[in-house]
Design a binder for these strands. Structure first.
Lengths: 110, 110
DNA sequence: TGTGGTTATTGACATTCTTCGATATACGCC
DNA sequence: GGCGTATATCGAAGAATGTCAATAACCACA
């Protein structure tokens, strides 16, 4: 009989990580990180035309990335006249930090 | 001529986010999050056999995910006899927190 | 209403990723 | 050395993702 060590209880692998995966997937693209970083640095509204101008991507692709960020709630958008302005969602940083902490908590407590 | 507002300097989109993308890509899968979470909760070594036992994946797939986590430095592995034990890298939490902060800094300073 | 400019959506294609079976490698033991 | 077990690698199939051209939707203005 094999003296197999018990290193880990099987329930430890059974958590539901889908909500966090959605956020991390949104971060798993360099152009979306550039968009988020610009929004965070600006700390205000940025119109789509600036993204299409500053990114090496065509307009539909930029729109696609913005939609992904919108769908997971990391950014908000508001149309004002002809232009659409995007902002970092107020709780974006907190939600990302919380998601990270839910996976690899910094707290030393059990 | 169109009175186009200047919302954003074009250089704001030009950062290099490749190092962070690698980390976030590693987090963009529920099974890898389960592995990382288990390693973080255990705060010690976990042998591969426990992952293959606890995850709904075949052994080659588990090995593949572990390799991805190893390649980006979030986990370390050590063979001891027949078994291979994985650990969360000592700086894993810090590197992830730093990557997040590099994109959407929490600090209010410019 | 029509025209021009901005953003969103659709459909298609190429690439990447996840998963698996088959196989190889590494180790302990007889 | 030979055998059994644990882990890694290879190669391929299917799904998901990034990208673009074409087009639609929306808005301001004449």
């Amino acid at each position: 009989m094999s003296m197999q060590r018990v290193c880990l209880s099987p329930e430890s692998l059974k958590g539901d990580f889908e909500p966090m995966v959605g956020l991390f997937k949104a971060l798993a693209d360099p152009h979306r990180l550039a968009i988020l970083s610009a929004l965070a640095r600006e700390d205000g509204e940025v119109c789509v035309c600036d993204f299409t101008a500053g990114l090496p991507l065509n307009q539909p692709t930029v729109s696609h990335h913005l939609k992904i960020l919108r769908d997971c709630g990391l950014v908000t958008s508001e149309r004002r006249g002809t232009w659409v302005y995007y902002q970092l969602a107020p709780d974006a940083r907190q939600r990302l930090a919380d998601a990270l902490d839910a996976v690899v908590p910094l707290g030393v407590l059990a």
